[in-house]
Design a protein around this nucleic acid. Structure first.
Length: 255
DNA sequence: ATGGTAGAAACTCTA
């Protein structure tokens, strides 16, 4: 079973890239973030023509998460239960015996801002929820844009980024809290190239200079980590005209 | 210290 995640930064704009990418990789399930459209504007016909079913939790302008699957999913859930959130940031469903969750963690804007405090509260709520989800679903995968780089090697210049949003210690501690529940960082289950990133700022020719961060992650429950055979970042879509600022991440787990 | 780009939507906010 091949599952992936991609922050598309507008599904409307990125639809041609997404359709090509689905054809190229043929994933069984894909988590999308930042669709930036309402459910009624979801490009259902094109996604279905590409061979995918879909569920979406969207809103106008900001946020929005979706789950694309080759076969019907069920037990669809939206949001973090018991956490009131105006933003559409979580959608979950059962896919071929695996619980798959698409998450778009708040960006946090800047350390100390209201949005940063919201990010930390949001992560605390996510962690509390996923503790119970892990107990309920042995095969649990939580994929998405976490807006946190876990380690120095996940940042092009860790010294410059120390204490900055996306890499501050409280954010990294929150991400470690998820790993402490038993989740594995699928990417680090395997040897990987140095300077592997999933996001590059649109500005300053950051992608061409590989000035990036690894902030999009696939978290796997212990049983899924055991059966995971690969995890890769696909930088190819980032090279295209009018790309998303994020690259997709893919992993393969035994069915 | 600032600004650089992109997207959506509305002339600004978010990332």
């Amino acid at each position: 079973m091949k599952i992936g995640t991609w922050n598309v930064n507008s599904l409307k704009v990125r639809l041609p890239h997404l359709i090509d990418w689905l054809a190229k990789h043929s994933p069984d399930a894909v988590c999308l973030q930042e669709t930036k459209c309402e459910d009624k504007a979801f490009p259902a016909a094109q996604i279905e023509a590409a061979g995918y079913r879909w569920v979406h939790s969207g809103q106008k302008t900001y946020n929005g998460v979706a789950l694309l699957t080759k076969v019907d999913c069920d037990r669809v859930g939206r949001g973090i239960p018991e956490f009131t959130d105006a933003a559409s940031r979580v959608i979950a469903a059962d896919v071929q015996g695996t619980r798959v969750v698409s998450v778009y963690v708040p960006n946090g804007q800047s350390v100390g801002s209201d949005k940063y405090e919201y990010k930390l509260r949001w992560l605390a709520a996510l962690t509390a929820w996923l503790r119970t989800e892990l107990a309920a679903h042995p095969r649990l995968a939580v994929l998405g844009d976490y807006n946190i780089a876990p380690e120095n090697r996940d940042v092009h210049d860790p010294h410059a980024w120390e204490g900055q949003v996306l890499f501050s210690e409280p954010e990294r501690a929150a991400l470690r809290g998820l790993f402490d529940l038993g989740f594995a960082d699928a990417y680090r289950l395997f040897p990987q190239p140095d300077k592997s990133f999933t996001w590059w700022d649109y500005r300053m020719n950051a992608f061409r200079r590989n000035i990036g961060l690894r902030i999009d992650h696939i978290l796997l429950s212990p049983a899924l980590a055991q059966s995971c055979t690969s995890c890769t970042i696909d930088v190819e879509p980032r090279r295209l005209e009018r790309p998303s600022d994020h690259a997709p991440v893919l992993c393969e787990v035994a069915a």
